[in-house]
Structures are given as C-alpha cells and as structure tokens.
Design a protein around this nucleic acid. Sequence first.
DNA 1: CTGAAAGCGCTTACAG
DNA 2: CTGAAAGCGCTTACAG
Lengths: 356, 356
Amino acid sequence: MPTTTSGTAPSDGRSRPTANDVAKAAGVSRSAVSFAFNSPEKLSVGTRDRILGVAKDLGYVPNTLARMLKAGQTQSLGVLLPQNLARVMENPYYSRFLTGVGQVCDEQGYTLLLTPPLRDSMLKAIPYAAVDGFIVCGLEHDRGEVAELRRRGIPFVLVDSSPHEGVSSVDVDDEGGAYEAVRHVLDLGHRRITLLSIDPGPERAERGYRGPLARRMAGVARALEDSGTGLDDIEIIEVPATRMDGFKATKRFMSSRPATAIVTMSDILAFGAVDALHDMGLEIPRDVSVTGYDDLPDASWMRPRLTTVRQAITTKGRTAADLLFSAIRGEDQHPHQLLGTHLIVRDSTAHPHTAA
Amino acid sequence: MPTTTSGTAPSDGRSRPTANDVAKAAGVSRSAVSFAFNSPEKLSVGTRDRILGVAKDLGYVPNTLARMLKAGQTQSLGVLLPQNLARVMENPYYSRFLTGVGQVCDEQGYTLLLTPPLRDSMLKAIPYAAVDGFIVCGLEHDRGEVAELRRRGIPFVLVDSSPHEGVSSVDVDDEGGAYEAVRHVLDLGHRRITLLSIDPGPERAERGYRGPLARRMAGVARALEDSGTGLDDIEIIEVPATRMDGFKATKRFMSSRPATAIVTMSDILAFGAVDALHDMGLEIPRDVSVTGYDDLPDASWMRPRLTTVRQAITTKGRTAADLLFSAIRGEDQHPHQLLGTHLIVRDSTAHPHTAA
DNA sequence: CTGAAAGCGCTTACAG
DNA sequence: CTGAAAGCGCTTACAG
C-alpha cells in the first residue's frame, strides 16, 4: 500500500498558494514570508527579494480575510438599510445620503458595504457584514437590530431615529420642516390644500411607524391647528415615493377635487406633481402652488424652481459617518446630533389666484 | 510570587466573549457551542438550549470574519470603482448601474461592497475588499488591477472595457450609439453642430483612454465622415459631466458661436444645455436641437422630452452581476456580452429653423 | 537576521 | 449524543 509523501496538499493549481507554500519553496519560515510583506525592514534585502520573487512566481498574495481576522479590523463601513439594494440605489435621497457617508469614507480610506435586509430581515443581515461599524438607517433604538448590534459590541450610529441615552444618533427636525411648509402655504392664503404624502408600506404601518414621516405629519397637524383647522380639513393622499406615482395621483385628484396648493412630503412626489400640472395645462404658481420636501439637487433645476423644505441630506450622511468613526476610535461619547430644516422659498408658490 | 490561574484571559468586559468562553461556562466543548449555532439537530434539545442560554447571557455571537474565513466565502459582491465614493454616488449613471447590480445581489442574498481607489490607486484597494468576486468598472484587460485579480484567483467581470480572451466582460456598443445620434442630427439638416463632450480628466488622458468615451468619439467621427465632413468641421467642447458644467458651457458657446444642434455625450450635460437654452429664451427644438446620451430616467421627464441614445444601464449592471455569479459558481465560461444602443427620438430635435 | 510557537475565532470530520 | 484535534491563513512577540 503506497503512502502519500506529504500530509498537507501543496498548491495544486486549483487552490490558492498559502504563506506555507511560499515558505517551503523559498526555504524560509512562514514568519519570514509574512515579514517580507508586512515588515520588510526586518529582513535582509536578499532574503526579502527572494521571498517576494517566489511569491510572485507562485502567485501568492496574503489572504484578505485572514488578515482582517488577525488585525481585528476591516477598513470597511457598513450601512444597514431598511430596503433592498435596488430600491435604495433608485432613490435620489439615498444618493445624497451616501454621498455624504462616502465623503468621509474617502477621507479615511474605507470601503462602503451596503447591507440590505436578508430574507426581509435587517436583523438577519447583520452577521453577514464584515465591517468596523454600522450606520443604521431608519430604526428606533428599541428595535431588535439595535440590541443585536450592542451584543456584538460593534460601534453604530442611528440615523432618522430619535435621541436615546447611550446610543449615537443623527436626526433631523422633520416636524419643524413640515410645519414651515404648511404654514407658508397657509400664510399665502391657501385653504384648498392637498397633502401628497408617502405611503409608509404595510410593514411599517404594522409596527407603528415613528420615523421622519410621522414627525412630518405631526408638523403638518400643528401648522393646521395653529390656523384653526386640522388634518380633517385637507385632503391627504398617500402614494409610494416615485415621480410616476406623484404624477398619476396629481392627475387624479386635480380632476376630481382640485386644490390651490399641493404640499408634498417628498421632492420626488413634487416633481411628479409639477409634471402632471404642466400636462394638464395648469400654470405654477398662478393656478396651483406646489411645495416639496428634501431639496434634492433637481429642485432648483425644476421650472418653476421648487419651493421646498431643505434638509441637509449630505451633511446628515457626513455627520453619521463622522460620529461612527469617532466611536470606532473608541470615543464613547454617544452624542446626538439634531440637524435643522428650513423652508427654501422659490418660484413654485404664490397667493391663490383669486379668480380661480 | 503569585501565579495567574488561567493562561488565556477570560472575557474581561472589554473584549468580546468567544466560543471558548461559552464552552467553559456551559461545561461543554467548543464544538458543542458551534453545533448549537450551526447544526442544532446534532445536539439534544436540553444541551442546545443551555448553550444558547449561556451564550445569550454572555453576549456571545459567532465572529463574522472567522466564519467567513472558515467558510471560504463572504456573501458579498465587490464593485471596483475608478472614482471616489462621493463622486460615484453623485452620478446618476452609477445609480442606474448599481440598481442593476443590486437587483441581482438582492436575489442572491448578497451585500454590495463599494470599493473606491485607495490613495488614488484601484490596485491598492483590492487587498482590502473581502468579497467573493469583483465587478470592475472602466478598466482595460491589460491593466495591473486585472493581473492582480487574476493572481488572487478571485472571479471578476470587466464592464465598459473590451472583449478579451479568458476574461468575462460586458460592453456597450458606444460607437454605434454616438454614430446614430450624429447621423440623426445630420439627416435633419444641421451643419452648425457643437459637440458637448466629457472631459476625461488628466489621469485618463495620460494613459491614452480607450473606454466608452473614445468609442463614442469614434462613432461621431465616422458619422461625420459618412456625410463628407470631419471632426474639424464641428465645435468640440469638453467639460466635466455635471449639469452645472453643461449649463455654463452652453451659455458660453451659444453666445460666441451659436449652433443649431448640440450633440452631447451624456444626458447630464444635455440637461444642463436645455436649462441654459431655456434661460437664454431659445426654444427647443425650434431654435436649437439637443441630443443626450444614456437615456437616464429624467430624459423622458424633461420638457421637451429629450432625444437621446439609450444604453440599457440597469441591464448592464444586471448582466455583469449575473456573469459574476456564474463565475463564482465555478462556471469558467468567460463570456463577452455586447449590449446594443439605439437612438430614442423624442421632442428635442427637429430640422433647423431655416429663418434662424 | 531567522525560526518555532501561540493565537486571531471559528468549524467540521472523526472517533468514541 | 459528545469531545479532542486539525485546520481555514495569517501575524507577531519571543527566543535564539
């Protein structure tokens, strides 16, 4: 019975060569191979070059994962997303937000890992993300994901949540922003107002959604109350936040119950509304006023230029990433950043046309 | 002299507990702990629950990196980018492309790692990406990055490169697309044409850029030659691909050397050109015709709706990801996909106004 | 300047 | 149903 010569299989063409293979081939120890790559100054020039040469011949490169495991860091930042990748990438809001996060990653030399729900669960996705920290989008502090992150002892920052003891967070004054928008329209004299809002989806509705949208609605309600009316006195329509949905909804309600002002909870919906009004031959703001929310770049390219609530989305991303990096560095401050909003009055709003 | 009781440090509050800590605390072996998480059916219900209970108390969760190292896979797809994250996220082209890639990742339950250059080098970024495969954007097969990827034995797919033996790739018929656009404008009777093109940047110019832009320019040249003229007979302007740059450039050249048709190499530039023409009180297409390139979603929302060259960007992303997954599964086919382009004639082009 | 050893944490045949 | 052992590849004090 023949015996195999060596216990461990050498590089056989299929599997990658390891540091061991290089060590054998170069006649040095495994440490020497490691030094050649990581601490060349510890080796004689001759030895180093020989090792590197052999490594090149064999096609050896240190394994990324093993290196990360040993080093205890990945040089990668995770973004825990509440939606699928495809939907996130289609959403101009996330383009802005990730631009901000990306700026900081670029400065720090980090890669960016986009982590969508796994089998519809954000919780299940967490164990599959090899990152040094997470930016968590749109989750309250009492969610299971947050407990899981805590258990893992991995730094994280909550975005669009609400301030909570011992948890870093970045939030936006959405209540105030929506208040200003409605107040503006009311002050202009509008009374026939349609609120074009975002359908939170069945999942979020079940859980009792308390995020930015809820705060915006609270702002709307407060503005109406201040003027002696209420949510019941305006028409409220909820659709998915796409331009097409904004377009279709506007065509629909403007032909059944026309408004003199359309307040939207998202620029994307406002864009669709403007498209629809143009299409119907209505003039903005003479016939109808429109307000947006977010101040996406296209808001100022629209004709007429869109009156909208500005939230500094890119700053939000930057700030979240900055806080996360300070947490990664071990500064356990857990600060809460509240970013302001303000109304940008452009050309899409005016007094109602008294003749209309 | 007192001696320490245990050689290895137990969980001391700062560092995460390991499977070993759980094993000790639960009075079982390390394997039992692993089985409790990965193969519960191999354990008695009682033992399993006890282990899981202890794990919960100690706050133990299996280490992601160690798991990946052992499993030999990361459940993550890498996109090797030629630009910083911030610039990529700002670019609507990438939004579309990554939407396509994201669709496939969503189906496969993969995360998406965006890997920008590290210290201005795409090559240096590669060792820091823990992924099962790479989609490589805008790199020719003879670049160092491609050799590096090969050495690592990691699957990859080239996008916007050119077909090459033994390398999977997804390319677009950019030459044909640009040809059609110029041909269309020529056929309409335009002769005073300005080509608004993309500034390739100093880095790419040095290397002799052979990518999509070069192919588009070749298509432009061929269309002009077919009609008996050449690149010298039209005005060519190169600017960064932003709406603002398109806007400014158009204002500038239309007041010095007005054209009757503006052919752009990017929808983003076309959007800016349309904005500028509106601003100057010129009517499209009566006074000036404009063509785009890409057919971004906003192209059909523009007023007038933009005539443009459609490349199926999302399909490109999908296809690249599909090819990558089949490579990850070990199907070494190295196919080359060539995606077509075609001109979408909308409302921004017409015969030149003879009176103009 | 170099080598044997321990360890980053985990998983999985294998033998009991 | 359970435990000792080897191994995924790498790195880094430590002793020579």
